[in-house]
Structure formats: C-alpha cells, structure tokens
Design a protein around this nucleic acid. Structure first.
Lengths: 185, 185
DNA sequence: CGCCTTATCTTTACGATGTAAAATTTCTCT
DNA sequence: AGAGAAATTTTACATCGTAAAGATAAGGCG
C-alpha cells in the first residue's frame, strides 16, 4: 500500500502524495476519475505540480500501474502461491480486490507500456505466470501459457466489468472463492 | 459492415454516417480517437449535430458497440460455428480482426451498458456462449461457462493489447489460427 | 398551392481538461 | 550569506463535451 511520507523536502513527498491521491480516487470512482487536475486538487497542489516528477498524466498513471504490477507479483510470488491453482486464484482475487487499479494496468491508452519502471514491474508479475506454465508438462508450452494466462485474465476482466453477474455468486468472498476454485479446478 | 446510405432526408443519413466515421477512426487510431468533435468533423457536420440522434457521445459509442456485438453474434452463430472450438475461435478471431471495436465493446466508461439496443445486441452474442456451455456436460455449468468465456475473452484481450508478443506467432493469419487451435484444443 | 408544425442542423457560449512557458518560492551547497 | 538548482505556482492556450438558442428544410394539412 502507498502512504504519503513525512515532509523531507520542499512541500512534502509530492510524488508519493500524488500517487496516494490518485489511487484512492481510482478505487473510489474508477478510471474515469483519474484526471490530472482532480488528482492535484485532491493533493492540495496546483494543477501543474506533477509535471516535474512525472512529466505528464500518462507518466503519473504509468507509475501507479507499476505499483499495481508490483503488488500483483507479490501475491503471486512462490512463497505465497505454491500450487498452480494458487497463482490463478491470486491473480483473480487481486483483480476483484483492486478493480480500478487492475483496469488501469491493462488500459493501454492511459499508460505508457514503454515506461521503464512499468516494464520492470509488469515483467516481474508475468514471470510468475511463465514459471507456472514451465512447471506443468505439456506439448506446446506457449499454447499452454497463453491458455492459462488467458483464462485467468479473462475471468478477472469479466468479473470486474460485472459481466458475470448471475453466473458468479455475489454473496460473500468465501462463496466467490469456492466458486473460483471450481473454475480453476 | 456499415455504409452511409443515400440522402433520403435532410442532410443525408447522418446517424449511419456518424457511425461510419466513428468506426473508421476507431480502427485507424484506436479508442482514444473517438472524440465527438473529431467524429462530427470527419463526417462534415457541426460538433453538435449528433445530439438529436444519439444524445451524447456515450450514446453514439453505445450504438457503435451494439453493432460490434451484432457482428460478433453473427460469426458465433450456429450456422457458422458448429463445434465448441469454432465458437471460441470465432470470438478470438473477431477481436483480432476488429481490435478497436472489441476494446470499445468492453470499455465500460465509454459506453452505457443499460442502453436498450446495446443490451439486446450483447445479449444475443452471449447467448451463443451460454448455449455452448449448456451443450457440454459437466458438474457445475456456471463454473464451466465462466471458465470457457474467461479463457476466450482473456486470450482475445491479451492478444489485442499486444501482451502475447513473443508467445504467439506473429507471422501470418494461418499460423496464428493454427496456434489458437492448439490453445483451444 | 401555402402555411405551420416538427425534426435537423448550426451558431454561440460555458465550464473543464492537459500542458507549455514564465515567474516565484524554497531548498542545498559552498 | 549568496549563488545555483529544484519545486511549485501563475498564466495562457488549444481542445473537449454539451446546453441553449437560432436558422433551415422537410412533411402534413387546410
């Protein structure tokens, strides 16, 4: 989780404060709420205060997406997810727990996929999935990997977009988890 | 495919012309290019000419998304896709052939999912997938359906976003098709 | 045929957005 | 202390979506 640090510098740790504001607004009101002026307003600074740190809005959102990929890699790491099914469940659970952030991470017109920090973070997350496909024996590893990642990513995306209402139990996290375990049996 | 009709009315069949402009701009420059002023400019009318027909930008884009779902339902229809694998391949092929349109169809902040025309069209498309899960015998039909749709949707989404470069052969449509058949073996 | 209602389209106007440029403030370092 | 660099604000501009009001042309009806 992000937290605004003390005030070691000029006006505080503005980069972290901006990311913190952006994330809270993101989870509250969705990706549509991620306007530069709204974020800076929420952080209590002027509209152009983010430029020296992130360049432009895309840079700021790319940094936020990188945080998302770092956290996703964390919950999929081998120490937390031992079995293949654990990795799949961690992926979907992360998406359901952080719908706005997950949406941002895969929205290519709001972020810059070439951003070095973003590339590094997303690479770390995808390595967990790649290792998973490597572990399972099969004919074509690439096809296996695409199928596995596709299933995980598709279920996560559809769940976030509310496409599975009626198909997925909406009761409690426990029943959702039980249902997901059946999907990824 | 959309095509601007003759000029039976005032200035022509503007609704169709606007949808035609929007679609060509969409496939040319992506979802980010779908600005109301740009679309109307492309169609040669004033910026507010779309309002009487579509209300606002969301209405126009929802109508375009509805066209997308109609075409998706078409390629997944039983007369074109007999085996379950055919339905899956049609879904992914449609996404790869119409990346911008497919992205729009699932971008919830640009369209209105409650739009009646959109609901009808998307319902028709999803019915093809539901019937597919109904055909296959299995323990929990809902879990089967979610897993199947998720895999199909995830592979399509990841392919569109360029996430599968390196995993998927980029040579020719034939090799891509062969690869996909292996994914959905 | 002539008028009148209605739908279609344009003009105008307003608030909001992203960001470039210049000015201002604040920190760091010698 | 004073210079230089970094951070932040002020100002300005092009663009966006759309509401309101005016202009234009079509169809219905006498």
């Amino acid at each position: 989780m992000i937290e605004p640090a003390k005030t070691p510098y000029h006006h505080g740790d503005l980069p972290t404060a901006l990311l913190f504001s952006a994330r809270s607004m993101l989870e509250q009101d969705g990706v549509a709420a991620l306007k530069l002026r709204a974020i800076t307003r929420h952080a209590g600074v002027s509209a152009t205060a983010a430029a020296p740190h992130f360049g432009n809005l895309t840079g700021l959102l790319s940094a936020l997406a990188a945080i998302g990929f770092t956290e996703l890699a964390e919950v999929m790491a081998p120490e937390h997810a031992v079995q293949p099914r654990d990795v799949a469940l961690a992926y979907v659970r992360f998406a359901i727990a952080n719908p706005g952030l997950f949406t941002l991470m895969f929205r290519s017109d709001a972020i810059d996929r070439q951003d070095p920090g973003l590339r590094a973070a997303s690479g770390r997350a995808f390595a967990c999935l790649a290792g998973l496909a490597q572990a399972t024996p099969g004919a074509d590893r690439a096809a296996m990997m695409v199928g596995l990642w596709g299933k995980v990513h598709g279920v996560a995306t559809l769940a976030i977009d509310g496409m599975l209402s009626g198909l997925i139990p909406a009761d409690s996290p426990q029943t959702i988890d039980a249902f997901l375990e059946q999907v990824f049996r």
